[in-house]
Structure formats: structure tokens, C-alpha cells
């Protein structure tokens, strides 16, 4: 018996080492880099821990060397928070009725609908965002369709706007929301709804007091799975926002590209992780037993 568990510990230990090396190594590297400063020729000057990169998140020297608020970071942070929250809410509104609808179909229809939701989710993210360029761009598919209905229409001008980013984010992550809520909805006992209605509760009261609370684990898991990749998204704002409406993901990438200020980029990444952790903590408080990923996966 003890021999078997010794083997089990070895079976866990080696993969754990690999995970630590491959995954926690990079996270520690970010943390370490965020306490360095920019080397004169770009890259990193590793001499001694400094907090400049963090100060630079909020203040940046202007032309005369005086500190002024760092608009780039603050606006990217608030815009990311705002767009990720909107994306999560829109996905919730679309996914809850859809998940409930699917959960009440026959086994065959259920399997088919789930497959149909999963397919676009596995299609390449870059290609899926690119498809929206074709639709939204000036004289693209949407403009041409509207112009054929309404001659003289000037075009929506949607591409390279915050709305376009929002559409792209919802499109990218909607399946993440449906699947966990479906997993909760499927376990749901619909007799409870009949019971609630029989006892005289209105439809909206039944949904608010009976259905939604029981769907909470799925809703929380889905919200996490949508919120996190939206908050740190790079592709969608780059392709559909045209790089003007910078989100945190773009700002980080910029530090590792043209700006060559890696320490600053690492500090922004740490800021993003802290922001996400705070949101997760808030969500955990909302949930009965805390959110977990098992709802969807």
C-alpha cells in the first residue's frame, strides 16, 4: 500500500515540477522584471530592486521632467475594465436564456446545439476577429447591406470603434458563458418552477428567487471565463479597435515592442493580475461555495 502511494507521489511530483518550471517560472519572471528598470538600450537592467516601474504606472515625467498622471495606463485600465464588464454582462443576457433553452431540449437536439456552440469556439480567434473586419469596415458587408436597403446611407463607421471592440469580445467569448450555465441548467429540477408558480409566485419572481440562484455556479464560472480573457485581450482591440482604443493587453505588448520598456510592461501585467484577482475575490463572495471551473469543463 505504502509502495503504491510512494509511486503516486512521484507521479504527482514530477508533473508538478514541470508545471512549476513551465508556468510559475514565467509568472515569477514577470514579478522579478517589474522591480527592475529599463536598460539604456531597451531590455532590462537587473541591478537591484526598484519601484520605478510601478510609480510609472500612475505618474510619468512630462517634457520638463515633472511628474504628471500617466493617462495611457489609467485610461487603458479603465477602458479594459469597462469593456470586459460590458462583455460579461452582454454574454450573460444572451447566454442565460440560451442555456436554459438548450437544457430543456431532447438529448439529440441538446447534443446538436452544444456542438454548434462549441464549433466556432475552437475556430481560430484571429480569423474570427478578422471576419468582423470584413463585416464592419467601410463599404464592408454591413454597409453594403444597409445601402441596398436604404440608398444614400453613408455607412456605419463602426470599424475601429469601441463598439467594434465590444462586438468582437462578445463574439470571441460567448461560448465560454453558455457552456457552464448550461451545465448548471441541466442539473436543474424544473418541478421547482412549477412548484413556485403553483404557490402563487409570478414568473419574474420565480426566475429571480428560484431559477437564477440555482444557476449561480454556472453564471459565476461563465463570468470568470469571459471576464479574464476580455480584460487582457490583445487581438480584438488591435484588429477591430485599430490600435487607437488601447486596452491593457495592447499597452503591455507595446512595452515589449516599439517602446522597449520591459520593466514597465511587466508592472502593467502585475497590475492586470491584481485587478483580475480583486474581481475574482468579489465574485467568490457572491457565490455560495465560491466559483470553480468544474461547471463548464
Amino acid at each position: 500500500m505504502s509502495n503504491r502511494s510512494a509511486h503516486s507521489y512521484l507521479a504527482i511530483g514530477l508533473p508538478l515540477l514541470a508545471l512549476a518550471f513551465l508556468f510559475f517560472g514565467p509568472l515569477l519572471a514577470i514579478l522579478a522584471a517589474s522591480f527592475t528598470e529599463r536598460a539604456p538600450n531597451g531590455g532590462i537592467d537587473w541591478s537591484g530592486p526598484v519601484f520605478d516601474a510601478y510609480t510609472a504606472l500612475f505618474y510619468t515625467p512630462d517634457l520638463f521632467g515633472e511628474l504628471e498622471p500617466n493617462r495611457a495606463f489609467l485610461s487603458a485600465f479603465s477602458r479594459s475594465l469597462y469593456l470586459a464588464t460590458c462583455t460579461t454582462l452582454i454574454c450573460l443576457v444572451a447566454a442565460i436564456p440560451m442555456a436554459i433553452y438548450i437544457s430543456r431540449r431532447s438529448e439529440r437536439t441538446k447534443t446538436l446545439l452544444l456542438l454548434l456552440i462549441t464549433i466556432p469556439f475552437w475556430a481560430n480567434l484571429l480569423a474570427r476577429n478578422y471576419a468582423w473586419i470584413l463585416i464592419l469596415r467601410a463599404n464592408g458587408l454591413l454597409d453594403s447591406a444597409l445601402q441596398s436597403i436604404w440608398p444614400g446611407f453613408e455607412g456605419t463607421g463602426l470599424l475601429y470603434s469601441e463598439t467594434a471592440i465590444l462586438i468582437g469580445l462578445v463574439y470571441s467569448f460567448l461560448p465560454f458563458m453558455v457552456l457552464p450555465i448550461f451545465a448548471s441548467a441541466e442539473r436543474f429540477d424544473w418541478d421547482l418552477v412549477s412548484a413556485s408558480r403553483d404557490l402563487g409566485a409570478s414568473v419574474s419572481r420565480t426566475y429571480g428567487k428560484v431559477v437564477l440562484p440555482l444557476l449561480t455556479p454556472g453564471i459565476l464560472a461563465g463570468s470568470i471565463l469571459v471576464f479574464i480573457p476580455s480584460m487582457g485581450n490583445f487581438i480584438t482591440p488591435q484588429l477591430l479597435g485599430g490600435g487607437q482604443d488601447f486596452m491593457l493587453g495592447n499597452l503591455i505588448a507595446l512595452q515589449f515592442g516599439a517602446s522597449r520598456n520591459w520593466a514597465h510592461g511587466a508592472a502593467i501585467a502585475v497590475g492586470l493580475m491584481i485587478g483580475i484577482s480583486l474581481v475574482l475575490l468579489c465574485l467568490r463572495r457572491l457565490g455560495p461555495k465560491g466559483p470553480h471551473l468544474s461547471g463548464g469543463a
Binding site: F23, G25, P26, I252, A269, I276, L280, L293
Partner: peptide
């Protein structure tokens, strides 16, 4: 928590992991 550790990469935005992996 070990079980959670093997799921954890799902909870880190890819851009964060990407630059971490580069630095690493």
C-alpha cells in the same frame, strides 16, 4: 489546491503568460 494548480493556466490572461514566458 494541487488539482487547482493544474487548471490555473486557464485563469491567467494569455498576454500576461506570453510576456512572462518571453522573460523566462
Amino acid at each position: 489546491s494541487l488539482d487547482g494548480a493544474f487548471r490555473l493556466p486557464l485563469l491567467v490572461p494569455d498576454i500576461v503568460f506570453a510576456i512572462g514566458a518571453l522573460l523566462f
